[in-house]
Design a protein around this nucleic acid. Structure first.
Length: 841
RNA sequence: GCGGGUGUGGCGGAACGGUAGACGCCGGGGACUUAAAAUCCCCUGUCCCUUGGACGUGUGGGUUCGAUUCCCACCACCCGCACCA
């Protein structure tokens, strides 16, 4: 006799051990089954698993388990994106070592993941912070260097002048350092770059082959790469031989130009600043603040009139003033622009502020006057006006015409420009992959010989003072030059952690000790059939991984263009917030501190009311987090997994709720009763139930493959109700056995327990997905909607496949329809077979 | 500021241009019980002159016999913006 209730506290661990003993989720490279590589973005080991991880990994797990049931050899691995800033912050705040902290976090989080019963091949686990991983990364970096894809150049960082350290963008708050509170400055450093722009065209073209990626991600990447055709041309300085080189994507608006602006770090600005103190002060002022685009573009547009003038290339006696402006970026184009205020918002803001002329040169309607009014630039299509020989052309025609003339007259040429910039990978930090180069006074910058890899991080570092501990370490950076043998220094920059995550999916395919990956194993498993992670990675991580894959193919290490055949971006897990104003600001309470009471909520501690706030992403600062361990303790892994899959479509946010998880718990028990209490000896056929069963199996399979888990869940609820209501029969017994298999990918522990209790041999995780009889998928009756002038007036249940005339006659015979027509003349009847009749009267 | 997305009952959501609200949660009523828990059954978009009807998918327009779905404009919220991962 089975227990009355399903007890996850005993069943979960028992089945997790059974899978481990059976090696159910070991991926066998030599299997001749079709291969399926299911991958979720690996986590940063922050300390504890977040409920968002649980959602992400549950989705991948359902797919991986389903693939196994449908006859695939599945690779479903897990690892750790283990380098990064939080470990150094912990070291500074708590005095622990980043390595010890990270490894302890990994142990804890691994145990948390295991409790959820994920079908992972733990034999392939990796952590990017171990030399066994990053040593291979150093070797790859050196190979890319040999191929000319790695170089050094100057680039700006956020400099904290008090802590004397480089800050990440997130450490700059309102232009000030997060610890010191000092005003941040932009400072130039010589840094390492990867030549991603060499692949810009390929990365753009490749997007069209990724037709199972979300359109939004492809669009975002396309915009990020930002291919644009434009004109590079020279504006000659008046009374000088030299000029200012400008790049523009809008040569059509050239006659609307009213000024030229250069970046504060443009060579001309730098030269002039040396002799003009006011300009030097302005340039220094521009150095304040952070380096992010959002910050630069939202700050007030300011400029400094240099007093210089340039001639307009199309009209040499027409002179334009030259400004140094804080919104012009040295990194993009030539570091100089011409401003056409009427048709660019930034230029318009600037022109209004400095009283510069605003000429309309593109018109979309009757308004064609030269004087442009208002504070909203017109950037849409139209025809050119007030522009001499360009008048009447479309924007595109005018662009081509100006480029043609510039090339003919020799003052400029058409050019393709990319918004994408090369990837700066230098980080002035300890907890990352050391960049394997040596600085020698005699030989310059020399690669570490492959035989000396890995360059291992020193363990004995201190975090008491800010800055890079590698730089300060007493001995680590002192080495002999591999070239001349003289004394030299190691590079102390480490690699951006995005490098670590740009090839981990290759290392999962095989883990040889003498090389980063085995080419044949990569060929067997890659590309990843389904990659799942958050939208926040839509651009950077995914673009870098695509680039790295192409770069490795370029140097002949693999034969793969795109690493991820299909991509899915899941939504966040959210929760309502609880707060109470105190001392002029809100203080927040966690869900476990609060009692929900009908409409409101009270604080358990004092019984007083708290405000129920917005439903937002779970975060420590708002305290609206739930801990996966706690809920697994209370409800077991299956109820938690089921909740992760129910209700919300997987690409949308999922609001966590106490009542929701309780509902899932009740459903687990409801299934358990159904499995335990039914009459296994019953005989006889139940055609309607058979039909429902086969329709459900078919639909659930399609839903899982489309990752529409919420729909699969809804169908399983429907089938469960249908089985519960059906009288005992052989059909019903069969349906219950099949239902166990349907829920097995989602609630694997319950399913194993039930499978055994039903007398089935082996593990349900290793069984075969039920087959569908196509004959049972079709219904023989359909319900037809009958509308009069588009409004529903009646429904008819009729045999499937009636002709249009039969349906029309049946519809007109309806009393309700006749009442709605009310004697009016029937002008038209629209019939959609097996669906609807619409009478237009 | 720029790029991308989302918007449907009290809540999460479903719906090849064709019956809006499947399925779940909450709530209400009932059954069982000494009682509670658990479980089961029924009801549950709003409004009205309630055997019926009107309204209703962020807002305002448009296309169509018919629009949650397609087009245009707007509003609100969310994500990304190159050193958070």
């Amino acid at each position: 006799m089975t227990d009355q209730r399903f007890d996850p506290s005993s069943a979960d661990g028992r089945w997790q051990r059974a899978w481990e003993v059976a090696g159910s989720f070991r991926a066998d490279s030599d299997s001749n089954k079709p291969k399926s590589y299911v991958l979720e973005m690996f986590p940063y080991p922050s300390g504890r698993i977040h409920i968002g991880h649980v959602r992400n990994y549950t989705m991948g797990d359902v797919l991986a388990r389903f693939k196994k049931l449908t006859g695939h050899e599945v690779l479903h691995p897990m690892g750790w994106d283990a380098f990064g800033m939080p470990a150094e912050n912990a070291a500074m705040e708590k005095g622990v070592h980043p390595g010890g902290w990270t490894r302890a976090n990994i142990e804890h989080m691994k145990a948390q993941l295991k409790r959820l019963g994920f079908a992972l091949d733990w034999s392939r686990e990796l952590a990017t912070c171990e030399p066994e991983y990053y040593g291979h990364e150093q070797a790859l970096f050196l190979k890319l260097h040999e191929a000319g894809l790695v170089y050094r150049k100057e680039s700006e960082v956020n400099w904290d002048p008090v802590d004397m350290t480089v800050l990440a963008n997130e450490q700059v708050i309102d232009g000030k350092g997060w610890r010191s509170g000092a005003e941040i400055e932009k400072r130039k450093l010589s840094q390492w770059f990867l030549r991603i722009t060499q692949f810009a065209d390929e990365l753009l073209e490749g997007l069209s082959s990724l037709d199972t990626w979300p359109d939004k991600v492809r669009l975002m990447q396309e915009n990020w790469i930002g291919k644009s055709k434009g004109l590079r041309c020279t504006f000659r300085l008046v009374d000088s031989d030299s000029g200012i080189e400008v790049f523009t994507t809008r040569p059509d608006t050239m006659f609307g130009a009213s000024f030229v602006a250069i970046a504060p770090d443009h060579p001309l600005a730098q030269r002039m600043a040396a002799t003009v103190p006011d300009l030097a002060a302005f340039v220094a002022e521009c150095k304040k603040g952070g380096t992010t685009a959002a910050e630069i573009e939202t700050q007030e547009k300011r400029g400094f009139n240099t007093g210089l003038s340039v001639s307009h290339p199309l009209e040499s006696h027409w002179h334009l003033p030259v400004y140094v402006a804080n919104f012009v970026l040295m990194d993009y184009g030539t570091g100089a622009i011409f401003g056409c205020p009427a048709h660019d918002q930034r230029d318009l803001d600037f022109a209004r502020k400095y009283g510069l002329p605003v000429h309309r040169v593109v018109a979309d309607g009757d308004e064609t006057g030269e004087v442009f009014r208002g504070d909203e630039a017109y950037t849409g299509p139209g025809h050119i006006v007030n522009s001499r020989w360009l008048d009447g052309m479309t924007v595109d025609e005018a662009k081509a015409a100006v480029i043609a003339r510039a090339e003919h007259e020799g003052w400029g040429k058409g050019e393709t420009q990319w918004r994408l910039r090369d990837w700066g990978v230098s980080r002035q930090r300890y907890w990352g992959t050391p960049i394997p180069f040596i600085h020698c006074a005699a030989c310059g910058i020399v690669p570490v010989p492959e035989s000396q890899l890995p360059v291992v991080l020193p363990e004995d570092v201190d975090f008491k003072t800010p800055g890079n501990p590698l730089e300060r370490h007493p001995t680590w950076k002192q080495v002999d030059c591999p070239g001349c043998g003289g004394s030299a220094q190691r590079e102390t920059d480490t690699l951006d952690t995005f490098v670590d995550s740009s090839w981990y999916f290759l290392r999962f395919a095989s883990q040889p000790t003498d090389k980063p990956f085995d080419r044949d194993e990569v060929a067997k498993w890659l590309p990843v059939e389904q990659y799942i992670g958050g939208v926040e990675h839509a651009i950077l991580h995914l673009l870098y991984a695509r680039f790295w894959t192409r770069a490795l193919r370029h140097i002949g290490l693999i034969d793969l263009d795109e690493p991820f055949a299909s991509l899915f971006t899941q939504g966040m897990v959210t929760h309502e917030t609880y707060s109470r104003p105190q001392g002029g600001r809100d203080i927040w309470f966690g869900p476990e501190e609060v009692e929900r009471t009908g409409h409101g909520a009270t604080l358990r501690a004092d019984g007083g009311p708290v405000t129920i706030g917005k439903v937002v992403k779970m975060s420590k600062s708002k305290k609206n987090v739930v801990d996966p361990d706690t809920i697994v303790d209370r409800f077991g892994a299956d109820a938690v997994r089921w909740f992760m899959l129910s209700d919300s479509p997987p690409e949308r946010d999922l609001p966590w709720s106490e009542s929701g998880i309780e509902g899932c718990w009740r459903f687990v028990q409801r299934l358990w009763r159904l499995f335990a209490e039914h009459d296994t000896a019953a005989t006889g056929e139940d055609k309607a139930l058979d039909r429902k069963l086969h329709q459900t199996v078919d639909a659930v399979a399609r839903d899982i493959e489309a990752l529409a888990f919420n729909k699969a869940v809804a169908r399983i609820y429907e089938l469960t109700s249908a089985i519960e209501k059906a009288p005992p029969s052989a059909s019903r017994s069969g349906a219950i056995r099949t239902l166990v298999q349907l829920v097995a990918p989602m609630m694997p522990h319950l399913a194993e327990e039930a499978w055994t209790n039903l007398g089935q041999q082996g593990l349900v995780a290793e069984s075969d997905w039920p087959t569908v009889d196509p004959a049972l998928l079709v219904e023989d009756e359909v319900t037809i909607a009958v509308q009069v002038k588009g409004k529903l007036r009646d429904t008819l249940t009729v045999a499937k496949g009636l002709s249009n005339t039969e349906l029309e006659a049946l519809a007109l015979a309806s009393d309700k329809v006749q009442r709605a027509i009310d004697g009016a003349e029937v002008r038209k009847v629209i019939v959609v077979p097996d669906r609807l009749v619409n009478i237009v009267a």
